[in-house]
Amino acid sequence: MSDPIIQVRGLKTQFGDHVVHENLDLDIYRGETIGVIGPSGCGKSVLLSEIVGLLTPTAGSVTVFGETLSELSDRDRQAIERRWSVMFQDGALFSNLTVRENVMVPMKEHTNFSHDLMHDLADLKISLSGLPLNAADKKPSELSGGMRKRAAMARALALDPELVFLDEPTAGLDPITAGRFDSLVRELSRLLGLTVFLVTHDLDTLKATCDRIAVLGDKRVKYTGTLEEVSRIDDPWVQEYFGGPRGRSVVG
């Protein structure tokens, strides 16, 4: 393990009276795939939004690539934002653009590629993420849920980011597609040295892709470790999570 690529220290999040996180610490290292799990409503997606700067934490600091986001100028921030990408839970594709145009959006914004190259590269990313090429000319509303997720993945990979945030990437996918998705994540993280921050409920995805798992609970990161280490922890929620029939088939 090398230097941490993301460092979260003493994070506190509060919405009105409702405290979501308190004293939350988390380190994510370069090249690893970390899965964040936890009960519904424990603030997994909120944590993700705070790391990428969509939400400002009430207190505490988030350091990405060695820079503290809240202290950066807009320009430096943009330079950093270009090095990561986010795949949102329901895709968040631009609905007035075709899939190919969606994938080309980040390229248009941040590179000086010619239209032809962007077009070809977009097609490459689309087929990499497992979509048939005839989907490239369709609007997101004409695609199924699973295909939308893959299109969102293609957009997230458009600029070859160093760090990818995936929010529930396999939720709502059929097992075959989900399996392919897992191996795609694995392959890319191996090939490109991608660091992956994964929020998921899918035990198979955890097993197939994650080097480490972070368990959120009681407003902080309760445990981190490999799948085996975490599954042996004596905690009621963790035991129920891994001890259920679905969990047993993965761990056991």
Binding site: H119, D120, D123, L133, A136, R190, L191, L192
Partner: peptide
């Protein structure tokens, strides 16, 4: 380290005629 695997990854993908 990565060249071979990456070149394999990008080759052999179907290219759609524009």
């Amino acid at each position: 380290a990565q060249a071979k695997a990456l070149l394999e990854l990008v080759s052999g993908r179907e290219r759609q005629e524009k």
